[in-house]
């Protein structure tokens, strides 16, 4: 598949996430929309990683160069970055949900509009 397809798909997913953050008031749903946006980025990173890998192998084959380990490894940074995004997302969710649970205990609601106490 051409890379543009993947770009448009993940942009669409990202925008859906943004619309969700803008239109919903439930803190948990807003949090879930952030996860959706992270996943859209992950998808794009994986697609780019494969694109660079394929391009590097093709370029080496065109120039009749030997295909070394370094060439086969091209693009693996993208996937490792995705792996770290997942790790950080997991850590973020544990802390974030703990905060939401605390907020629910204090104001008995998950509505973000009631969370304006810092203003006063």
């Amino acid at each position: 598949m051409p890379i543009t397809h993947y770009i448009i798909l993940s942009l669409a997913l990202f925008s859906i996430g943004i619309v969700g953050v803008l239109t919903r008031r439930n803190a948990i749903i807003i949090f879930m929309c952030i996860e959706l946006m992270l996943n859209a980025v992950n998808l794009l990173l994986v697609a780019f990683s494969k694109m660079h890998n394929y391009a590097a192998i093709k370029a080496a084959a065109d120039q009749k160069l030997p295909i070394t380990e370094a060439i086969l490894n091209t693009g693996s940074e993208g996937q490792i970055f995705v792996f770290f995004i997942m790790v950080v997302a997991a850590a973020e969710v544990t802390v974030g949900l703990a905060i939401i649970v605390m907020m629910y205990r204090n104001i008995h609601s998950v509505d973000v509009n009631f969370l304006n106490r810092l203003k006063h």
């Binding site: 598949m1 051409p2 890379i3 693996s76």
Partner: peptide, 21 residues
């Protein structure tokens, strides 16, 4: 964006496999 580099050939590299990663 330059659509010359497609990722048509998904079988090409094994960069997503667990050994390499």
């Amino acid at each position: 964006v330059e659509s010359a580099s497609t990722i048509e050939d998904v079988k090409g590299g094994d960069v997503g496999f667990i050994k390499r990663l």
